[in-house]
Design a protein around this nucleic acid. Structure first.
Lengths: 214, 214
DNA sequence: TAGATTGTTAATCGATTAACAATC
DNA sequence: TAGATTGTTAATCGATTAACAATC
């Protein structure tokens, strides 16, 4: 098994990896020991070709005539997606959405630890969030200098995000999970940012529902 | 201005519409009366070409030599995305995420009204959610027959979604905003479904952060 | 060996970008 | 009129799908 990680992996491929991983875990749980690209593709609603192309980005761990060993696939995908140590994350904005997301991050997803939460609202500061206490956003810079968190989860309005962006980019953060409408692409085109635009998502769904003829 | 709505609009175009709309509203607020495709493109991080291609899907409301009239664009995009009447939505799953999403849906996004909420957990049924009361999921079918809601917001685990899917598809719902990992594509390929896979989103971000070399 | 399935190259498809005549 | 900018066709780019030799 050779590792092709020196080649650039395209974003569409990266986005499909979690789905492969989820399904492979299920297969493993049900005791399946080997799976073909066409079975995987059928299950994920794609082609066998795409599955083979995707998996091959990370080295050939299939076996001709047999398929992919489920345990091998599972551990390879685990290593790629989750790795051996958690990424430390801070929450910025502890409103309703921030609280839901942080619970999700702490309980449901592997590979991350929420280590601090910040807000600028009087009534939020000092409240508890899981086993953390919400801190004053004024202390964000000092906190980051001291603890060097890796990921920031932004659950704040666009205006706040836009105002904070220049500062945020000086804190050594390595990625953003961005629920605000602020767009980092112009300021930091190469920084890993994953945008979740709930409003846009719902609006585009509304469009499709209102225009089923299109 | 001719309407080309008989031509199929591609999904990438539909997904960009909310961003156009947001920026055009901002321009309107700041009193700008006209905007060129290259200005719009620069702001949204895309090309003037793409802006013109996109907007032209809905009829030519630009003016050669001048650009696009902001008020015209704003009202055209409003009509496309929001229309004249709200889509009625029900929430299925009133856990932490469901509650955050419903608040969002009710307060932040235009074009939708949340009309009912359901859960299967004893301790959720009867609790209040905004100005609604969470109902027993057992009454879902009856409710839908009576009130014919248009959109279901699924904030339940994959297992529950997978179990409910066959029923859900008989209730006359016209679209799903799906926060579960269940995949409707196989059962109902043409139904408008917008998937928000928070776990996948975060995991793919994790991958990019762990493999910045790729 | 024969059947199955991979790894990988080639062909197709669709979306983005470029170009330019039309026209305000 | 001259300059600017659209609408639209053509070219490019990248991602998906198909094909097939290699091989288990």
């Amino acid at each position: 098994m050779q590792n092709n990680s020196q080649n650039k992996i395209s974003l569409p491929v990266i986005k499909r990896l979690p789905r492969y991983y989820r399904h492979v875990l299920q297969l493993q749980k049900s005791g399946v020991s080997t799976v073909s690209s066409s079975d995987l593709g059928a299950f994920l609603g794609t082609t066998a070709s795409q599955v083979r192309q995707d998996l091959n980005c990370f080295g050939g761990f299939g076996q001709q005539g047999v398929g992919y060993r489920v345990d091998l696939l599972a551990s390879a995908l685990h290593d790629l997606l989750i790795g051996s140590s958690n990424l430390s994350a801070i929450l910025i904005g502890s409103g309703r959405l921030g609280r839901a997301i942080s619970g999700f991050l702490d309980n449901t997803v592997q590979g991350f630890s929420l280590v601090a939460a910040f807000d600028n609202a009087e009534y939020q500061i000092g409240t508890s969030l899981g086993n953390l206490t919400v801190q004053d956003i004024a202390g964000l810079s000092d906190y980051c200098k001291l603890h060097q968190p890796q990921l920031a989860v932004l659950c704040i309005p666009e205006k706040s995000a836009s105002a904070m962006a220049p500062t945020l980019l000086t804190l050594g953060l390595q990625g953003f999970w961005n629920f605000s409408h602020y767009d980092f692409a112009s300021l930091a085109p190469d920084l890993p940012v994953e945008n979740v635009h709930l409003g846009d998502s719902l609006q585009s769904l509304g469009f499709r529902m209102r225009h089923t003829d299109i």
